[in-house]
Nucleic acid binder design. Structure first.
Lengths: 108, 108
DNA sequence: AAATCTGTTCGCAAAATTACGAACAATATT
DNA sequence: AATATTGTTCGTAATTTTGCGAACAGATTT
């Protein structure tokens, strides 16, 4: 009966998930996770998309909090946002931990 | 230089992430994970959205493979898709495991 | 057979997403 | 100062997403 309000955790998980909801953005995150830091150009030259589009995807990831950018004229260095990455990691871990399919009947 | 093609894992991760990229859908998944199984009505009455909208979100989750529906006239029972849930869990786990921020300099 | 219950689908509207080229701004180089 | 480099922003177009009421379909009950 009672409407279950959407709580903060769900909102934040959804926000991170949305940011990761595009293959290009997943590829960017994977690249950043391997490379430690990257300049825009290094990221862009790996991707099969226009410069403007790459910049837009990076903006999305930044606004979601998953990465941060630092201006190092004339370049821009991007890297993973440690704190939010950890938060996202925990949120997803909790989320997927809620259903232990092999241990109960939730998915029979 | 070489364009890094988007691989299958990235595609699938993005697909699952996209499905989880809405607070309502996260709430539905949480509910299903706790309740074992649910009829549409039970899900809908918890959510602050219209019946048609709830049905649409469930369709999204089903098409992404995270849940499955079974018709039990006149009701419809939804539950988590075990195999795909496990796959998603593994994909996200690998993804977040790629950057151990505290162990290297990836996010300095 | 008519009415009811359950949930999906249809049709629509508003908003957000995706993608690109061109223009732009800021710095560095010549 | 003129030119080149680096990356963002603007303007535009096509597509997708979100949300809802109304209509609908299928099964059950009266």
């Amino acid at each position: 009966m009672a409407k279950t309000a959407i709580d903060e955790k769900q909102q934040r998980l959804a926000r991170y998930a949305k940011a990761l909801g595009h293959p290009i953005r997943v590829a960017i995150m994977n690249f950043l996770a391997e490379q430690d830091t990257c300049f825009f150009g290094e990221i862009h030259e790996r991707l099969p998309i226009a410069k403007a589009t790459a910049s837009q995807h990076l903006k999305e990831l930044k606004e979601a909090g998953l990465i941060q950018g630092e201006i190092m004229p004339p370049k821009v260095k991007y890297c993973i946002n440690r704190n939010n990455w950890q938060e996202a990691k925990n949120l997803f871990s909790d989320f997927f931990g809620k259903c232990q399919c092999s241990k109960n009947g939730c998915c029979e």
